[in-house]
Design a binder for these strands. Sequence first.
DNA 1: AAACTATACGAACGGTCGTGCTACCTTCGG
DNA 2: CCGAAGGTAGCACGACCGTTCGTATAGTTT
Lengths: 196, 196
Amino acid sequence: MPVDGRLARGAATRRLVLRRAVDVASVDGLDGLSLGRLATELELSKSGVFALFGSKEELQLATIEAALEIFRSHVVTPSLDVAPGLPRLRAICENWLDYSERRIFPGGCFFFNVGAEFDARPGRVHDAVAVASGSFAEFIRESAREAVALGHIEADPEVLAFELHALGRAANADAVLNGGTQAYALARRAIGARLS
Amino acid sequence: MPVDGRLARGAATRRLVLRRAVDVASVDGLDGLSLGRLATELELSKSGVFALFGSKEELQLATIEAALEIFRSHVVTPSLDVAPGLPRLRAICENWLDYSERRIFPGGCFFFNVGAEFDARPGRVHDAVAVASGSFAEFIRESAREAVALGHIEADPEVLAFELHALGRAANADAVLNGGTQAYALARRAIGARLS
DNA sequence: AAACTATACGAACGGTCGTGCTACCTTCGG
DNA sequence: CCGAAGGTAGCACGACCGTTCGTATAGTTT
């Protein structure tokens, strides 16, 4: 199979830029991203980075996409290997807390940060963040519905999913803001009590 | 009592600037604040606004302080009028949800937004946000302890406070990001179940 | 009335931002 | 081997950033 070396080169630097971009954005936000800063840190030219994405907004959207892939590989995919119902629900929570606590993104959960950043602004970036965040929320809801349908737990699945999602995000927020791991312990106790 | 008209005038424009600043920051973040933008919108000179605060960081800190005052007057103070224990705990939650839902700040809860913005960055702004956020968390914890001590509810007050705070923030996050009021309804159901 | 103080302004500073344009180099298809 | 195409670099642009300076104005103090 013929591989165009030119395209391959572009895709490689694109990945290089995006790997840095998700880390920067998780700390300084998608607005804190700057072509010049990325270019300097990666020893590329600003115009080269710019040409790679065409506009800052496209860079932001590509960064969201890249972060989404990382998020899925750490949280969603491993959870799908676990049996549906309560076991999967537990796995989702634990994988998410682990993903936050291990600082897969240096600023904590990427989507928590950019969600808060763009929640009240219109535009394509807001929409992309909302879709990403919403699809994970729906994943929890669906898993909660399964757990209820299988008789593993008695609850309103909508409320249960909302609670679990809330506890995880609060742990991320408190832990990143204040340091320490106490918030994760609190969340694990609350989640454990809720899923027993 | 002698009032210095010069100082009074300065304090007045300071309030004028800060009133706008908290609204801007609740949507675009404390980094999205800009001296020039504030000055233009309020028909002041950029240097005048700058002189009023001395630096951008001081403006950010003053904005946090102004937001804190608004937050307290809407959430904390009214809750202190309610009897300690379960009634006060309920009042805190309801006042907080109401404060978020009524968009006292156009971007939703001010401290949720700037907390996520500065959680992973060092500096005085981070510290101020952490203190403000932490003191409200402590207020919930203390109220939860009272409710337990009074025998109004049986629970670990630390976990209970964490849960309530988490549910409120999640409602704010979902509602602002996706629009609609469904998230508040979910939070109220979850809180109601937790505080029964 | 004079000296002083605080607010507020206008202009300018150096810097960074996102965005074009142009040229060079590598790699491809014919 | 040649021209086309894609990736990358250099340079310049206009806009905005936070900041500084000098100055005018209004209010206080003596």
